[in-house]
Structure formats: structure tokens, C-alpha cells
Design a protein around this nucleic acid. Structure first.
Lengths: 125, 125
DNA sequence: CAAACCTTGACATTTCCATGGTAAGGTGGC
DNA sequence: GCCACCTTACCATGGAAATGTCAAGGTTTG
């Protein structure tokens, strides 16, 4: 296979499942060479990209779909501009907090789920 | 109510449902004043912001969660940087196409769904 | 050629997003 | 004090995202 790995090998060395490797490609986040017969070929560059992608998603709790949106933002200036304008526009008067409110929300969602899933949690032990 | 509208009134004049008004606030896309007793108070600024938000979402087929992500991008420079770097990094050698591949994908998804939902489709009549 | 591996496509599951309700209990203004 | 309206919390539904798995059929390579 002239220097490149096939999907299962790539999966093993990157931590992604073969299924997800196909998904990632489909999502437009990775371009691949193909063998004459259509096999996906993963070269060093692709493997590296997959590893960093993995880190990125994990480190910031971001999803592939969100990356896709980020991509959209950089390919659709009109969108980016419109959104920027919207955020720029007078965040409205209330001398409020907010800012990291969304973060707190996300956490709560997770905590709620975890709490529901785990054995009743007693923080104060 | 000193000049501000309560949630149902705001809903009527902005086209959002009360439910969604709470959701939008929760998503961190709008800050509100509250009455002493905790009622959400919508002033002219907030109402305007809600209307433009509505347009924005409709015009670009964007969701509230995605806006939330856009917000995250501007509040979390580390994230923005990381993503930028990732996209910048050598899109990998294959002299490929891609670019609008993601768009095509989204379309296909819809088509697939529609096809499945509709009466058995016979293209070749 | 045969065994091992790959391809696409379809179905299944889990979690999340976008919304709508509903219940139990405060708030507000007349 | 009442009645209408608001609040939070929780349950529910439909669709999309993220993954897994299986089937039918090519590809690779010893």
C-alpha cells in the first residue's frame, strides 16, 4: 500500500473507530487519497491531523458538528459578519452577569445527566 | 411594570413563544432585567435584539446552539485559536475537492430523510 | 485463488436540540 | 384578597448528531 495505512490500521494508531474515520471524512474535516480500488489511504499527514482533531474535540468539549459550523463561519463571510454584528450590537442594558452563564448551563446539563446516571452522589463525605 | 413588557407580551410582539424566550435567555443570547419578584422584563432593546435574532437564525439556517457556539468562540480565545490552527494546518496533500462537500452532505441528509418519509418514490417512471 | 480487509448502505441506539405542555407555587395590580 | 400572569422544574416528542453493527459485494496480496 505504498507507505499509507488502510482504515483499520489508521483507526488503531489514532484512537478513532473505523466508523468514525469515515464519518470524519464525510463531515468534510479530512481529505484522503484513495487506492485504485477505492480504499481510503491514510498518510502521516492525515494521521497527524486525526490525532490533533481528537485532542481538539476532547480538550474543549466540542463536537464534529460544531467544527463543521466553525468551518462554515470561515467559508461564509456573510454569516460571520452577521453574527458578529448581532453580538456587537448593544448587549442590552441590564447591568447583568451572563458571560459564563452558558458555560454554567452546559455544566449543569452534564451534571444532571451524570447525577441521574450515577449512584446517588454524596459530595460531603 | 415601569415601561417593560413581561414574557407573554414580549412573546406576542416578537414572534417567539414564551417557552423559547426562556430558552434564548438560558442559552446566554439575551440578558434581561428582572422585577423585584423575579419576572423577566423586556425593554425595547431586548425586543429589538429578539427580532434581529429571529431574522439571523432564519436567514442563515442557524440554530440557537450554534449561536451559542459562536459566542463561545468569541469568549474563549484559546478555543478559537485552536480551531483556527487546526483548519490552517496543511489540509493534507490529496489534491482533493471537498470545500463544499459538507454542504452537499447536509443536502443529502435531507433528501434521504424526505425520500424515506414520502410515499415510495419512483424516479424512473 | 482464498483469506483478510475494504466499500457503501441501511438499521439501531444514545444523547442532544428545539419545542410544547403541565404542575406547584410566588407576584402584581386593582 | 383575587385572579391573571410569572417562575422554575419536569415530562414529552421529533429530528439530528455520534456511534455501533451487519450485509452484500469488491480489493489486496501471499
Amino acid at each position: 500500500m505504498t507507505d499509507a495505512l488502510t482504515i483499520n490500521e489508521a483507526a488503531r494508531t489514532t484512537g478513532w473507530s473505523p466508523r468514525m474515520l469515515r464519518y470524519v471524512e464525510r463531515a468534510g474535516l479530512l481529505e484522503l487519497r484513495r487506492s485504485a480500488g477505492g480504499y481510503r489511504l491514510y498518510g502521516p499527514a492525515q494521521l497527524q491531523r486525526l490525532r490533533t482533531l481528537r485532542e481538539l474535540l476532547a480538550r474543549f468539549e466540542v463536537g464534529i458538528a460544531e467544527l463543521g459550523f466553525a468551518r462554515r463561519l470561515r467559508n461564509e463571510p456573510a454569516l460571520a459578519r452577521a453574527i458578529d454584528e448581532w453580538f456587537e450590537t448593544e448587549p442590552a442594558r441590564p447591568e447583568s452577569v451572563a458571560a459564563d452563564d452558558w458555560l454554567r448551563w452546559e455544566q449543569e446539563k452534564h451534571q444532571a445527566l451524570l447525577a441521574a446516571a450515577e449512584t446517588p452522589r454524596l459530595e460531603a463525605a
